[in-house]
Design a binder for these strands. Sequence first.
RNA 1: GGAGGUGUACCGAAGUGGUCGUAACGGGACUGACUCGAAAUCAGUUUGACGGGGAAACCUGUCACGUGAGUUCGAAUCUCACCACCUCCGCCA
Length: 423
Amino acid sequence: MHDLKDLRTRPEYYKEKLSKRSKELISIIDEILTLDQKKREIQSKADEFRKRKNEIADEIGRSKDDKEKVNSLKSESANINATLSTVEKEEIDLTHTLSEKALWLPNIVTDSVPFGEDETKNQEISKWGNPKNEKWIKPHWEIGAKLGLLDFERGVKISQSRFTVLSGMGAKLERALMNFMLDHAGSKGYKEIFPPILVNKDSMTGTGQLPKFDGDFYKCENEFLYLVPTAEVPITNLHRDEVVLPEQLPLKYCAYTPCFRREAGAASKDTRGIIRQHQFNKIELVKITSAEQSDSEHEALTRDAEEILEKLEIPYRKILLCSGDIGFSAMKCYDLEVWFPSQNTYREISSCSNFGSFQARRINIKYKANPKDKPQFAHTINGSGLAIGRTLAAILENYQTEKGTILVPKILQNYLGEIKEII
RNA sequence: GGAGGUGUACCGAAGUGGUCGUAACGGGACUGACUCGAAAUCAGUUUGACGGGGAAACCUGUCACGUGAGUUCGAAUCUCACCACCUCCGCCA
């Protein structure tokens, strides 16, 4: 969400910046400006009526004994009420449509973000490791099923498609990854949180999942609760409507949660394997910082995520998303993509975004840079560190041996009782 | 799930239809005075959102007493619904 006052004072700036994402946004800005103008006019009008009403009420209180005066004042107030109720209705409607409209404006991207309409303009920042593509490497779903780590049929039987059972060493490997990643984040100073997995509508709206993407999530019947699509939702909402003090900055959190997504628009994508599931596990890294620190903290958070892949010794690359591919709320975003030999390509495993004050304004998180300063909106940053299911899939491929076993990455061995190979 | 109670500013806590109620009183924090300095004391300040005026420090209007609706000329105060917390009973990992 943007600052409407600022938008009002320099609309051309917003038009120029937002047109980098999409030209259509210019007309939305114009609509917002018109609505805003109308709303302020109506508000002034309503304020005048309310002011007079307050005066009358005061006057009645002071001149209770003068029956005649009281009666005439009462009828004046009744008249005002008649008009005021329609004006107020209009005021409420306008305020509502205005804020609704304002929620559809995406964030402005920073200048370092390359311009482009789709993912072809994304910029590769760096590559790490030596990708292999030996012909004998089987896709993770084949080797996973063969070794009894992934049970697709039973996942479908007990739930539906895009649900998978992890079994035996598969389950243990998932748990090892979870612990390893949380320990890694802990060593980088992130405070570990285990949040509720069902969250209310306010939380979903706060981090921007609602109202725009309603339908992408699982909702409880007869309860106003949603299954979290990412730990970003409960973690960022920890500080909703709060002012963070200088000595607390930057706040750094990590959390494991399962994540639930309907994947409604992905009907034919990634139907095989565990790349795209309705339920998956993820470690999320979240930071709340000052405006000054936000850029460097974003870089650092991305590095923290990268290091996980380096410790696991799996090849990956780092992509800077272009203006057309970047997420709605982000001002800058790096994707980490991990190498999948069987597909001969890199696949997304982490998305590290800086939201600037965009998300904090919506969710009302402020900070004081100094104890005496007026609170201002904080900057929020988050990224996966990492998606666990996709990491497991990447291990099944990158650590596959020609004889059909899986070597356990060194860093994970002491999480798996020193087992070095899955047979 | 049943019965009762509570929800007021940074914290505690008064106020049960108007009459200096942005809201007493106490505490905390901040500013100033006294002091060589500090403590104590005294004086003052201490919410946010959305508008209007101004270059600006500032002036000014409306709204907000858990949330939302209602009654009334007028609501922290009365009515209804919802939410949260506390106590007791029931149930339960």
